[in-house]
Amino acid sequence: MPPWSGPLTQSPGSAPPDDCLARNDWICGEYLSTRRHILLDAVVQHLQLTALAVLIALVLAVPLAVVARRWTLASGPVLALTTILYTIPSLAMFSLLLPAYGLSASLVVAGLVLYSLTLLVRNILAGLRAVPEDTRQAARGMGYGPVRLLLTVELPLALPAAMAGLRIAMVSAVSLVTVGAIVGYGGLGNLIYAGMNTFFKAQVLTASVLCVVIAVAADLLLLGVQRILTPWTRASHA
């Protein structure tokens, strides 16, 4: 059996067709048409894992950042913990979660949540700290309580920094999902991993390019959301 036996599609016994799959070309239209469903399933899994992880991270990050902003004592440990989490390589992170989650999609989501959480907490905290003291004083002078101050003044003003963090977290998560292939839940990473073992060039290149396309699309989407949510920053640029 040749090492590229993976890509072959013909039934046993028939003469091998001379198409790009049999030649194992990098770019192959045949691959796109014959493996459309595999690609679609992988893209869907990729999007689900990424979106779920970033969403959970966002829900956890906002209160953490607010707590770290309000109680200065908490900010040191929170920042130290996020630095440590971010330093641990992704493959090691997934492996450390193996006893808790087993070979499951939850393991990949949990690992991605920890990375995204780090990026989001740091950025939201930086955004909250950058709110001018004068603005806070003015709001207090107008009779704003702490909750109203947070929700209607501080969080909206922290939004540009938070969105910048969200975009970085999203793009990083799209790229990191591929490492989930080690436990079989890596979205397009699964195709890259399988393609590596069978020297299937078209599959590896197609899946890799799709990863980058998803990352760029997600980034542009969030950029659009940011422009809608923060019209005042747009006005100042114009």
Partner: peptide, 18 residues
Amino acid sequence: SNVGRAVPTFAVLVLLLL
């Protein structure tokens, strides 16, 4: 740096391997 973040390291490793 932004471009580097969007490209999965695993994908580049496998592409180079092939």
